[in-house]
Amino acid sequence: MKRSSLFPYLIWMILFIVVPMFLVLYYAFTIPTEAGSTWSLENFARFFEPVYLKVLGRSLRLALISTGICLLLGYPAAMVMAGNAFSRKNVLLLLFVVPMWMNFLLRTYAWLTLLERNGAINVLLTSLNLPRLQILYTNSAVVLGMVYNFLPFMVLPIYSVLSKIDKGVVEAAGDLGANPFRVFTKVVLPLSLPGVVSGVTMVFMPALTTFVISRLLGGGQFTLIGNLIEQQFLVVDNWGFGSAISVVMIVLILLSMAIMSFFEGEEKDVALW
């Protein structure tokens, strides 16, 4: 078949993927001078100032907490779904996917209405004579928003690995004298590890770089890495620093992809870095 059919894409790829990446690199490694610009690592050095390290620390912490909660909630859910408690698994999966396809902003906005002072949750709590819940515009709200938005990314990969595990293997382990707990820790868990790894990556990466959730539910006072990048480009107009943070993000992501591909084994055609 014709390989020339690649040409439109090759041109597109170079113009809109490769060139922009090099532009980001260029801005990250230069600083403006009177004469134009000069090569420098200043932008990266700046990232290590305490203010920004704190932002990185907060982003990492919130992303890790969200990922942890997603894993704790998602693994049992995936296990139940892969088991035989339900007969119509396709419908179950579909139900999991549907909220994910709803506009991301509307989903986050929904929590805004639920959590606000006179929101549904507080109406319910007051009617039960319980104290109001005031977590909107706190870290908790941000974590909640992340868990809500990214939970399906954790459940689906784990489910797909678990549902492919040969039932015979589990039965064999039981047959060989392992109790259900040991069957889980010695057989099911190790076998499902690739799913866990890819679920963790799929939750951690967007959680680390989101700026919408923190802006809407965190109220703007809890700056995360994503907000920092946004500010540098749209408010402060310091592209060099914004690009440098982006480069750091790319490196972080590529590293975790490398770890993930190490765990998953290389798939055909899915060439990972």
């Binding site: 690649l6 113009l15 922009p20 967007p206 592209w239 055609d269």
Partner: peptide
């Protein structure tokens, strides 16, 4: 093939915000 596939994955793997600012710069 490997090279093309890797570049193709870039927008999928990159944080959205990075793709966004790179296009904005462009």
């Amino acid at each position: 093939k490997k090279l093309i596939m890797n570049v193709t994955y870039l927008p999928v793997l990159n944080p959205e915000i990075v793709t966004a600012i790179s296009l904005m710069i462009l």
